[in-house]
């Protein structure tokens, strides 16, 4: 863990050397994200609900997904662009070092500019929670914490699974965008608004529904079933095949040379 934090610090320092570039990067990220939120806000100007969900409920739903995705993009970029390590043959170097491989991959790259997305997501999240006037008790605090952790977990697992696939193909996988960007697109609205095939895929195959649908039902008071409090835990099961396949990939790994 110390290595990870250390290299994060170094990366941060190197970024600050290019202050102007860093700041324009941050600003443009804020602008990009603004357009995402703008879509939702603009549509709720014309419609007052979507299948019974109001503006702030949808914004909350969206902010949760953005939060997890942006954190993973910022701090786990090493996994996101893992194919580069493989293509350039740099992965061999990591194997030689007597430290945990996954940790080294994580430490290999960051994308701190995306931190502005995390901050934006947190702001929208807090605004929505206040506007929705949610009465917090111990259960709801547990729910929201589990939601946020599972949101990070789900993207981390997907990134890791796709990285494992690089061991076989060397190239990154284009389909990945369907699972991450596509999933993100889907999960920005409560999953119940979609057609049942989509719901099936994004409940059982890739469990977005357990991140921001079932637990949200409880949080928003749409259901009193306490089992929903713990529903985000299902996402953690998804972590197992991801880690196993990554380990399996390392075993199978043959260098591309150079």
């Amino acid at each position: 863990m110390k290595i990870y934090l250390n290299s994060l610090k170094l990366y941060f320092k190197s970024q600050l050397e290019y202050k102007k570039s860093f700041i324009t990067g941050l600003l443009s990220q804020i602008l990009i994200m603004f357009t995402y939120y703008f879509i939702i806000i603009a549509l709720f100007d014309k419609f007052d609900n979507i299948k019974g969900y109001t503006k702030y409920e949808v914004l909350l739903c969206f902010a949760i997904i953005q939060f997890g995705f942006s954190i993973t993009e910022t701090f786990a970029r090493g996994i996101d662009v893992f194919e580069n390590l493989i293509i350039r043959g740099e992965f061999d170097r990591l194997l030689l070092r007597p430290k945990n491989i996954l940790l080294q991959v994580l430490s290999s790259d960051y994308d701190l500019i995306k931190i502005s997305r995390v901050i934006q997501a947190i702001i929208i999240l807090i605004i929505s929670l206040i506007k929705l006037n949610i009465k917090f008790n111990i259960y709801k605090i547990i729910t929201i914490s589990l939601i946020l952790i599972s949101s990070i977990t789900i993207f981390f697992s997907i990134f890791l699974l796709m990285a494992s696939y690089c061991f076989i193909t060397v190239q990154g996988l284009e389909v990945k965008n369907l699972f991450t960007d596509g999933g993100k697109q889907i999960a920005q609205y409560p999953i119940s608004i979609y057609n049942k095939h989509f719901i099936f895929i994004f409940t059982f195959l890739i469990p977005y529904a357990f991140v921001n649908y079932y637990p949200l039902l409880y949080l928003l008071g749409k259901s009193n079933n306490k089992i929903y409090v713990l529903s985000p835990l299902i996402v953690f099961i998804y972590l197992i095949p991801s880690i196993l396949s990554f380990k399996w990939g390392i075993k199978k790994y043959t260098s591309v040379g150079s």
Binding site: D48, I50, K51, Y189, I193
Partner: peptide
């Protein structure tokens, strides 16, 4: 495949709005 997927997702979102 990406375009088909995103097309369907966007349309379903608007459909849900229109049906509400």
């Amino acid at each position: 495949s990406t375009q088909l997927f995103f097309g369907l997702v966007f349309i379903m979102v608007y459909l849900a709005f229109y049906q509400s």
